[in-house]
Amino acid sequence: DLVADMMLTVTPSVETGAGFSDGAGGLGASRGIVSVTVPPLALAGVTDEPAELVGRCPIDLATARVLAGYATGWDRVLADPITGCVLAVDRYTPSADMKRFLRARDQHCRFPGCRQPAHRCDRDHTLDYAFGGATDVCNLACLCKRHHVLKGETAWTVRQLGGGVLEWTSPGGHVYIDKPPPAIHFVPNTDPPPF
């Protein structure tokens, strides 16, 4: 990666040192990102759960604390303690785990009566991210393009009641409750019993 960055941004010169400084180009233009996962209680010194250099290997807590102390920014990631599935992040875009969870929970567009499949829908922040809405599964729902625009551009309103249940209010004041479909589907067996 460094060689590709150097070739694309500048021609370094051994004689003059051009391209090796922290100027606007060369090696100075290359930035790395190090992701370290540290349980918050371990970072605070309450527990001694392991830290991880993401995608590589475990690291000792002393090194993780030093890296955390020099970090210029933090991304909070809330994960389910049992499954490890990411439930919330401090960014606008939901993680792949969150998108997978929402597709399984919602199965289709969550506007009342719409059955556009979830894989064709947007993951919409019920309370807009720009207004402080969190990127977590309790504030996201699958909406098709049409109903995503309808929610944002008309007097229709929606709020989450918990457990994936949405309460839609029409411009006329009518309230519609949309519950996520059940996760288990029973299909009747039309074959006669074997006895």
Rank of each mutant, 00 (worst) to 15 (best):
Arg115Val: 14
Arg100Gln: 14
Glu49Lys: 11
Trp74Glu: 13
Arg76Phe: 07
Ala104Asn: 08
Ile59Trp: 04
Ile59Gly: 04
Pro112Val: 03
Phe111Lys: 03
Ala104Lys: 09
Leu53Glu: 02
Met98Cys: 06
Val89Trp: 00
Ala62Ile: 05
Ala44Ile: 02
Thr93Leu: 13
Leu78Pro: 00
Thr72Trp: 10
His108Asn: 05
Leu43Trp: 07
Ala104Glu: 12
Cys85Lys: 13
Lys99Ser: 13
Leu67Lys: 04
Asp80Lys: 12
Val86Thr: 10
Ala44Tyr: 01
Pro81Arg: 09
Leu53Lys: 07
Ala88Phe: 02
Val46Ser: 10
Lys99Thr: 14
Ile82Tyr: 10
Thr93Lys: 14
Val54Cys: 10
Gly84Phe: 12
Ala88Asp: 08
Val54Ser: 13
Arg115Ala: 15
Ala79Arg: 15
Val54Leu: 12
Val66Gly: 00
Arg103Asn: 10
Val54Trp: 07
Asp60Met: 02
Ala64Ser: 06
Glu49Ala: 15
Arg76Thr: 13
Ala71Ser: 15
Pro58Asn: 07
Asp90Pro: 03
Arg56Gln: 09
Ala96Gln: 10
Arg65Trp: 01
Gly84Val: 13
Ala96Asn: 10
Leu53Asn: 03
Lys99Pro: 00
Thr47Ser: 14
Asp80Trp: 08
Trp74Met: 12
Ala104Trp: 05
Val77Phe: 01
Ala96Ser: 12
Ala79Val: 14
Ala64Asp: 03
Thr83Lys: 12
Gln107Ile: 00
Cys114Asn: 04
Glu52Cys: 10
Thr93Asn: 09
Arg100Cys: 11
Thr83Val: 09
Thr83Tyr: 10
Val46Tyr: 11
Thr72Leu: 14
Leu67Phe: 04
Gly69Tyr: 05
Val89Gln: 04
Asp90Lys: 01
Trp74Tyr: 14
Leu43His: 07
Pro50Val: 11
Ala51Gly: 06
His108Trp: 02
Gly84Ala: 12
Glu49Thr: 02
Val77Glu: 12
Leu61Gln: 08
Asp90His: 07
Gly55Asn: 12
Arg115Glu: 15
Ile82Asn: 04
Leu43Glu: 12
Thr63Asp: 11
Asp80Ile: 02
Pro50Gly: 09
Ala44Phe: 00
Pro81Leu: 09
Val77Ala: 13
Arg110Phe: 01
Arg91His: 06
Pro112Ala: 09
Arg110Ser: 03
Cys57Leu: 10
Ser95His: 03
Gly84Arg: 10
Pro117Gly: 05
Gly55Tyr: 06
Gly55Leu: 06
Ile82Leu: 12
Phe101Val: 01
Pro112Cys: 06
Leu78Val: 15
Asp60Tyr: 08
Arg103Met: 05
Asp60Val: 06
Ile82Pro: 01
Gly69Arg: 14
Leu53Ile: 11
Val89Thr: 15
Leu61Lys: 00
Ala96Lys: 08
Thr63Arg: 08
Gly45Asn: 06
Val89Glu: 05
Gly73Trp: 05
Val54Asn: 07
Leu67Gln: 02
Gly84Thr: 05
Ser95Asp: 11
Thr83Asp: 01
Gly45Glu: 03
Gly69Thr: 06
Arg105Lys: 08
Leu102Met: 15
Arg115Phe: 09
Pro94Ile: 06
Phe111Ser: 03
Glu49Ile: 03
Pro50Met: 13
